[in-house]
């Protein structure tokens, strides 16, 4: 277990860049924007046991924005679910690490995702099962901001509130960008927190790269009774690599070897200040 979460996020980012460079394809922008959220969950908040990925009492994680798989894989490997040197097999034939999460392939992946908008419903189902079984586990779901354009997200938002699923804690990784451009240009999603509030959710809005803010928000979410919680995280797409930050073209393009080298040097030196909100 790593104790220094900032160091964990740097190592995760380095893995993300290396994996994507080795794969030659994939999604750096949204992996880097979700890094603090996923690091915080797997290294601080989630009750999981790498030796027993199917432990019934474990906390669950659903990566609605499945294209951020590199961030999830990095966390799972560093947490001990599978060897870290396996990360560079990402997206290759015979690898256990498909381009999007696959529960039947990868130890520690609780749900196969990748088709946007389906994760929150699954998280709700997990929470209903926990209630039926009298288990106290938490179910976390990380969605993208573009993802919440999918209608199913709002069906699930309605049912989570209807069934009072207070053990569902959702995050929206709001980096503002999606494949075709800025959310605002493609299909406006704001005000995200007001929308969830209108659906009956407890809402919080934080800086999604602020580890202390994430801690506090999770604590506040857990203290809520009788309704689900969403934490809207303002983030920077491509966070930690200066030339990727807030650049929409880095949604789904892997760095080449030279770009990866520059990126890794920056990550090792600490996150750049430029480009932050």
């Amino acid at each position: 277990m790593h104790n220094d979460l900032t160091a964990v996020t740097s190592q995760m980012r380095a893995h993300i860049v290396e994996m994507l460079a080795a794969a030659g394809s994939g999604h750096p922008g949204g992996s880097l924007s979700a890094t603090e959220i996923i690091a915080s969950l797997y290294f601080k908040h989630m009750r999981v046991d790498p030796a027993r990925p199917d432990w019934p009492e474990r906390d669950r994680f659903v990566l609605g924005k499945g294209h951020a798989a590199p961030a999830l894989y990095a966390a799972l490997a560093m947490r001990g679910f599978f060897p870290e040197d396996e990360l560079v097999t990402l997206r290759k034939l015979g690898s256990r690490l498909q381009g999007h999460p696959c529960r039947t392939d990868t130890p520690g992946v609780d749900m196969s995702t990748g088709s946007l908008g389906q994760g929150l419903s699954v998280a709700n189902g997990m929470a209903l099962a926990g209630r039926l079984d009298g288990l106290d586990y938490w179910v976390y779901c990380v969605m993208g901001d573009g993802e919440i354009q999918e209608g199913q997200v709002w069906e699930a938002a309605m049912s989570a509130a209807h069934y009072k699923l207070d053990h569902v804690i959702a995050f929206v990784d709001h980096n503002g960008l999606q494949i075709d451009g800025a959310n605002d240009q493609v299909m406006g999603v704001e005000p995200i927190d007001d929308k969830f509030a209108a659906f009956g959710w407890h809402t919080q809005r934080i800086d999604g790269h602020d580890l202390a803010a994430i801690d506090a928000a999770i604590a506040a979410a857990k203290a809520e009774h009788g309704r689900p919680s969403v934490i809207v995280c303002d983030t920077v797409k491509g966070r930690g690599v200066s030339f990727m930050e807030n650049v929409v073209d880095w949604h789904g393009v892997a760095p080449d070897a030279a770009q990866a080298e520059v990126a890794l040097a920056e990550i090792r030196a600490g996150a750049p200040e430029g480009g932050r909100r």
Binding site: L120, S121, M126, A129, Q152, E155
Partner: peptide, 24 residues
């Protein structure tokens, strides 16, 4: 053990999938 999901078939199937991951 019965969940009416309202007129929302996509959510119904996703919720069923989540229940199934837990052995239901």
């Amino acid at each position: 053990r019965f969940f009416d999901m309202g007129i929302a078939e996509a959510d119904m199937i996703g919720t069923a999938a989540g229940l199934a991951t837990c052995g239901k």
